[in-house]
């Protein structure tokens, strides 16, 4: 029996040489247990060693192999060829980001935004609190429920790629950064909300979002960044009205 094959149309871009990306089609053997990332690795091994793309864990944890597969942001390690076969699969770099080479995008903007929202537990008493065995910051299961889904984010940036607002206004803080800020704001052990709110409550923060909701659709970890953003809007609006109506109130 003749070997079954599948076509992959892959974006190529050589910085300094190409003015804009072009697509190149490769025909490779089809295996129904292969994911798109396997196919890219096959191309790199057998067809063109210069094909560039990011990957690391191959198991949906590291978040580095995100690309557009047939126009939809996906982790290529979780996108099976069998879901597209026998049609050709179109693989492009993540939308909304500058393309450095082939399928590799510039993620500096996201990294800066992530750092801006301080996605870690902030406490006033870290210097003075007794540390060591028996002195951990305790948390009840229901307090974990308050933020658990938002802590699943693996920073893969599929949500940024799915977000038209980020595509049109790159200053927008974006889904994952706000979801992670919300994750720490909702953590009963955290005391850093007042440090994060000026960043996420600014006009480039939550207010740019119009709840298109595609970020939550494409998230490979079932995080709901759109919900985190609206909850933050609601909380900020409550804080704002409270500060206007009851300026003497403490918080």
């Amino acid at each position: 029996m003749a070997e079954r094959t599948i076509g992959l149309s892959v974006t190529r871009f050589r910085p300094g040489e190409d003015r804009q990306p072009v697509s190149q089609t490769f025909t490779i053997p089809y295996h129904d247990d292969w994911v798109v990332l396997d196919a890219l690795q096959y191309i790199k091994d057998r067809h063109d060693g210069s094909l560039s793309f990011r990957w690391s864990c191959h198991m949906g944890v590291c978040g580095s192999c995100g690309m557009m597969v047939n126009g939809v942001p996906k982790l290529t390690c979780a996108a099976f060829l069998r879901d597209y076969f026998p049609n050709e699969v179109r693989v492009e770099p993540l939308a909304n980001f500058p393309v450095i080479r082939d399928l590799v995008v510039d993620i500096d903007d996201f990294m800066h935004k992530l750092a801006e929202v301080k996605p870690y537990i902030i406490r006033d008493d870290l210097e003075t609190a007794p540390v060591g065995f028996g002195h951990e910051f305790r948390q009840a299961p229901e307090e974990v429920d308050d933020y658990r889904q938002f802590s699943m984010c693996i920073n893969c940036m599929l949500c940024y790629s799915a977000c038209p607002v980020y595509g049109m206004e790159p200053r927008f803080l974006g889904p994952a950064a706000i979801a992670l800020a919300h994750r720490y704001n909702m953590d009963s052990r955290d005391q850093g909300r007042n440090e994060r709110m000026p960043v996420i409550g600014s006009s480039e923060g939550i207010w740019e979002c119009t709840y298109i909701g595609e970020c939550s659709v494409v998230c490979p970890k079932n995080v709901d960044p759109a919900s985190a953003i609206q909850r933050t809007k609601l909380a900020t609006t409550n804080d704002w009205f409270r500060s206007i109506l009851m300026p003497w109130g403490k918080r």
Partner: peptide, 17 residues
């Protein structure tokens, strides 16, 4: 308490209502 340097919460509140 933190400072919000934008009037957006007012507009969003009215939008929601």
């Amino acid at each position: 308490m933190y400072k919000i340097n934008t009037i957006e919460p007012l507009w969003w509140g009215l939008f929601g209502a």
